[in-house]
Amino acid sequence: MLLIACPYCGPRAEIEFAYGGEAHIARPGPGVTEEEWAAFLYLRDNTKGVLAERWRHSHGCGRFFNALRDTRTDRILTTYEMGTPRPDIKEGEAA
């Protein structure tokens, strides 16, 4: 069970959280083309390595936040609040 540091509540067990998929995917307005809309709905990076992803502390404070997780090791490099940019951390740099 992962130990995930909620930016508000600190480290908590994974069962308190719900996964929310890849982060930083902006929802386009209704004026975009079909292709752009399809990309928003369905195209994901399937990263091997450090992935920015969304989590919700659904059985805690209820807040959504982002995490940088290395998909090869499950190591979580950092977590950060929604609306803030992706931190520039590479695997090996995090504490």
Binding site: C9, R12, I15, E16, H59, G60, C61, G62
Partner: peptide, 9 residues
Amino acid sequence: TRSVLEKAD
């Protein structure tokens, strides 16, 4: 804090 009590909130 809110957490889980087995399968309940």
